[in-house]
Nucleic acid binder design. Structure first.
Lengths: 210, 210
DNA sequence: TCCCTTCCTGTCCATATGGACAGGAAGGGT
DNA sequence: ACCCTTCCTGTCCATATGGACAGGAAGGGA
């Protein structure tokens, strides 16, 4: 559809009711599970129990619906990060980072997997999210690594990315990781063991004997 | 297409000529850039300079073509890993891991990005590849971390994944990372700095002053 | 009662896409 | 000259998909 055409104007309805919310929930799950492109508007509507034409009424288009899901997921994500940071009242330990991760990623599988899709899609939304994450990680590093001699400027620069990759790795690889591990990578006990191992790596590396 | 139908038998031609190779190259690039689903057979044929019907002749179907690309990329990947491992004649240092990474990921952007797609797709091919990578990393860890006291059994188990996440992170996030870094994450000097930082992290953690 | 807004459905449409198929050109063997 | 195999193209087809649109039900205000 590249040429202009007279179409019925359909701006997004700001106040959606039950059906609108159901569409967002269904889309969140299906986008997270199958990806945006592989999910059809009819699938979403069927799962939400409404006609697929209603999607256009509430959200103008499939993309409009994705925007709504983005808002939902990225909003609650930001909120969870905020909560986690606040909880770490006594900063200075890496345990906080572990707790924060659990809080943010453990909660809702759909939201977690949707986040994965956003990061993996490789579009503007991905780099925007990654940018936020990098900034957050850089602040953490500056706050935690206080000794100016423990890292060169270059290594300090990469430290934020290293922490991020350790945390995001399981998120990005979740589906295959589940197969390789033979179980849910975000099951609380698994997540705890992984976080502990991460803390010890960041603390002492792999070779330092206890 | 769920019901049986009489169709012309078209088994994959084992010996493809120039055109077949051109199709593989084009598909490799386009799948890597846009993903399998988002790439149309007509796009591939156009880039290869042949009719889109030829695809079916040589590869039976779009999936058949993907199988051929898989073989190409995963084959050359396995070979590169082999070379890198052989090159590390004097094992025991982590420098080897750095060189191996460069060799494997630095070579061909198309192949690198295709590898990313395979890992991110989340299907059987993903878990198979990840399984191979985990096994390789576990062997490296066993070979490099000889002191039985430096890691608990649990931490040792996770060490392979940690190393993997540090290496795969930039691969999985390449498109957004390029935006955030403001440059190619696999440019040799960037890769070298990152590898060096990784080695120091694995050696001493983030907090140990030099 | 009449109208207006809001929410929703059934249905039609244009397009994109993977695949099916008939046939043609080229080259080699007999 | 004739045929057979290999490689390739033009073209048709069924289907899936996002979107467009007309109209209907419900509820509330006048």
């Amino acid at each position: 559809m590249s040429y202009a055409r007279a179409v019925t104007a359909t701006r997004p309805r700001p106040n959606r009711g039950e059906a609108g919310a159901a569409l967002v929930v269904a889309a969140r799950r299906l986008f997270a599970e199958q990806g945006y492109r592989a999910t059809t508007t009819r699938q979403i509507a069927a799962e939400a129990g409404v006609s697929h034409a209603l999607l256009r009424y509430h959200f103008s288009s499939k993309e409009g619906l994705r925007d709504a899901v983005d808002e939902d997921v990225l909003g609650s994500f930001g909120q969870a990060v905020g909560t986690a940071v606040e909880e770490g009242v006594a900063p200075g330990t890496l345990a906080e980072a572990g707790r924060a991760t659990a809080l943010v990623f453990g909660a809702d599988p759909d939201r977690r997997r949707y986040l994965r899709r956003v990061l993996v899609d490789g579009d503007d939304r991905s780099s925007a999210l990654l940018g936020r994450l990098v900034t957050g990680a850089e602040n953490e590093i500056d706050r935690l690594v206080t000794d100016p001699d423990s890292l060169s400027a270059e290594d300090r620069r990469w430290a934020a990315y290293q922490v991020l990759f350790l945390i995001l790795g399981p998120l990005l690889l979740e589906p295959s990781l589940e197969v390789v591990l033979g179980g849910d990578p975000f099951e609380p006990s698994v997540l705890a063991a992984r976080s502990a191992a991460n803390q010890r790596l960041l603390q002492r590396g792999l070779f330092d004997p206890r």
